[in-house]
Amino acid sequence: MRKILAFAGLILVALLAGCSKSEHPQEGKQFERLPTDLSAYQLPVVTEVFSLNCGHCANMESAIPQLEAATNQTFGKVHVIFNQSAQVSAMIYYSAQTQLGTTPSHDLMNAMFNAVQMEGATAQQQKQAINKAFTDQDLSSPDKLTEDQRRTLFAAMQQAAEISQKGQINAVPTFIVNGKYMVLLAGHKDLDGIANTINYLIQQP
């Protein structure tokens, strides 16, 4: 009887250990360490890296409030700059952030996503849509910034380019946590899983 109980106890310990291990996100599957520590940039604890050209990023925008609630964090944003197209859309994003002095609202983000990703629109129609997204929020359109605002915009873009390069960000959307970790969205099945990984990484040194 004692042997049976001891064997049963070992099985229970093994099962508990297995469950405990599976509860924690795994490096290489749900997240990875960034090749360069980005803490010097003083990013918010959780920062979304995205592009206005990215359809998946537009879809993720609607999920940000739920993720913020699940992690008790206010997310920052960095517009990735890894090619010329991303650079152009980054100018649009940072034109808004520069004027606001903070991360644009979800309504403005959605308006910018819709304008940049207009299908079948001419260049003129797209420009009008972008300008309308700004003026509807009582902001100046990107081509009407003051000299000081342009300097702030270019400084923000330079920092975004450095973060993109040093962090080797090659796919968006993603999340940087504590300036050291990047969430691998492909390793998650749902938003709860993403939130769980973010909460886990927040606690890591």
Rank of each mutant, 00 (worst) to 15 (best):
Q30P: 07
Q124A: 15
A6P: 00
H79L: 03
M157L: 14
L15S: 07
E162P: 04
N83F: 07
S85E: 14
C19G: 10
Q168W: 05
Q159P: 01
T174L: 06
S62W: 03
K3Y: 08
K77A: 12
H106L: 14
A129R: 04
R150Y: 12
N110F: 06
E68G: 02
L12R: 06
N178D: 05
A155E: 14
M1R: 11
T74L: 05
L52C: 03
V49H: 02
Y200K: 07
V177H: 07
G76T: 02
D143Y: 03
I81L: 13
N83H: 14
L15K: 00
T71Q: 03
S95I: 07
A8N: 03
A155F: 08
K127S: 12
K180W: 08
Q73V: 07
Q168M: 13
T74M: 06
V45K: 13
G167A: 15
Q73I: 07
L100K: 10
E27S: 11
E27K: 13
S39M: 05
L100C: 07
P104V: 05
P44A: 13
L100S: 10
S164M: 09
A155I: 10
I81D: 01
L38Y: 04
K3V: 10
Q73K: 13
I176E: 02
K3T: 09
N114Y: 03
A161S: 15
G28D: 07
N196H: 15
G76W: 10
Q117L: 02
Y94N: 05
R2L: 14
E119F: 06
T47G: 11
I11C: 12
N72D: 15
P65N: 05
F154P: 00
A171H: 09
N59Q: 13
A111S: 14
K29Y: 08
N131M: 07
K21W: 15
Q149E: 15
P65I: 01
D138N: 15
V172F: 05
G28F: 02
A111K: 15
Q125K: 10
T135A: 12
A90W: 01
S95A: 15
E147S: 13
L34F: 12
F75K: 02
A121W: 00
A90H: 08
M1Q: 11
K21V: 11
P205Q: 11
F175D: 00
G9R: 11
E23R: 12
L184E: 08
L201A: 04
M112W: 03
A96Y: 04
T98G: 01
Q158L: 09
A155D: 09
L16M: 08
A160F: 04
A6I: 14
L153A: 08
M109C: 01
F50R: 00
Q159T: 15
Q128E: 14
C19D: 06
Q204I: 04
G167F: 03
A6T: 02
V13N: 06
L184G: 01
M112R: 07
N170Q: 15
A6V: 14
L184N: 10
K127P: 00
I4M: 11
M60V: 01
E27M: 09
A14P: 00
S62A: 13
V177W: 00
P142R: 12
T135M: 09
Y93R: 02
